[in-house]
């Protein structure tokens, strides 16, 4: 059965391995370049004030790293579409399920081997890709301190392995129920894409109770914000240490009142972009945030991976139930 699985999967496997090899070469080169630049920058700022100097690393490499990250987020989807969905529909459409299911191997065993071999291959491809990218981008990630941002979280460490397992089984399951290759592929894409939006946006924050914290507003923090409103509302706050900021209050004074309507704030707000952060920082203001602390990163990675792996297992169970019961 393993021979048969390999024989049918050979071409797709070679395509996958080929693509992975190309990426590996690129990522190793990129990773070495980034390391080299990082060490250079570190040497420049040996005297202090490294934050500003190192931020040029994200300017130089951020775009490339992001792009490879997007691709990694797409890889499980591609696996689901091109490995998962056709796995059974191809047999159903060619009628060859009637050949292979009448050999001396039960349908359950046939499915188990197919899901096992291709599932592990999917996880290996995504895992290797993630390993390479995590290594290559590690210095950039360190400087950017945004490990929790969806695009980085989804494309580093072990989470992609869970996505790959899930997407592959999702494709297979949809194929088994829809029974036609192209609609199954399209559905796989839609379901996977929806989940990749819904999970970071609505589900992931609930893995643990967020913590409330007061963050003193320094000039650096003000500079990192993407939005400073006319009446003290803010957006895009990046907190040192890299926790995941779930929500933020407006700018508050030391007694916890909003400062947005005070004349002091309005005066600061009128100043130039260079002076304003310093002006605001002098006011001893802070923001109240709810956050997932940075040290929860690995906990979240594990939960995310476990969640998607569990979904994959549930779908696989559904496949076994379906394939034994009514079909054709």
């Amino acid at each position: 059965m393993i021979w048969m699985t390999w024989r049918q999967f050979r071409t797709q496997a070679l395509v996958g391995v080929g693509a992975l090899l190309l990426l590996a070469v690129y990522l190793v080169i990129l990773g070495l370049q980034i390391r080299h630049s990082y060490d250079d920058l570190h040497a420049q700022c040996a005297g202090g004030g490294c934050a500003g100097v190192l931020s040029s690393l994200t300017d130089d490499y951020g775009f490339r790293v992001d792009l490879i990250g997007y691709l990694l987020i797409a890889v499980p989807g591609l696996i689901g579409i091109f490995w998962g969905a056709p796995l059974i529909t191809r047999e159903l459409e060619a009628g060859t399920h009637r050949v292979v299911w009448n050999q001396s191997v039960t349908r359950g065993r046939w499915l188990a081997v197919k899901l096992g071999v291709l599932g592990l291959a999917s996880m290996a491809v995504a895992g290797l890709y993630s390993l390479l990218l995590t290594w290559a981008a590690s210095r950039v990630d360190l400087v950017a301190a945004n490990r929790f941002s969806p695009l980085v979280f989804d494309a580093r460490n072990i989470a992609p392995v869970g996505y790959a397992a899930f997407a592959f089984v999702l494709g297979t399951t949809l194929g088994l129920f829809v029974r036609r290759t192209v609609p199954a592929m399209a559905l796989t894409l839609v379901v996977f894409a929806v989940l990749q939006v819904v999970v970071p946006d609505m589900i992931r924050t609930n893995y643990a109770e967020p913590v409330r914290a007061n963050v003193p507003v320094t000039a650096d923090i003000v500079r990192s914000m993407t939005k400073i409103g006319r009446y003290g509302d803010i957006g895009g706050l990046t907190v040192p240490g890299g926790p995941w900021v779930v929500s933020t209050s407006a700018l508050l004074d030391s007694s916890g009142k909003e400062v947005g309507h005070t004349t002091w704030y309005q005066n600061c707000a009128k100043q130039s972009l260079d002076d304003m952060p310093v002006c605001l920082a002098k006011g001893h203001i802070h923001v109240q945030v709810t956050e997932q602390p940075a040290d929860r990163y690995w906990k979240f990675q594990w939960i995310e991976t476990a969640l998607f792996t569990a979904l994959a297992a549930a779908l696989a169970a559904l496949c076994f139930w379906r394939i034994r019961g009514r079909l054709t």
Binding site: W3, M4, Q8, G95, V99
Partner: peptide
């Protein structure tokens, strides 16, 4: 399953597999 041999309607075979591959499949399964 080993006791029953079945030739389905339209005699489906794996189009992309060779004759030898089919025999190998039979031997393996």
């Amino acid at each position: 399953l080993a006791k029953v041999g079945f030739v389905a309607q339209d005699t489906p075979v794996y189009a992309e597999l060779s004759v030898a591959d089919h025999l190998k499949m039979g031997a393996k399964l």
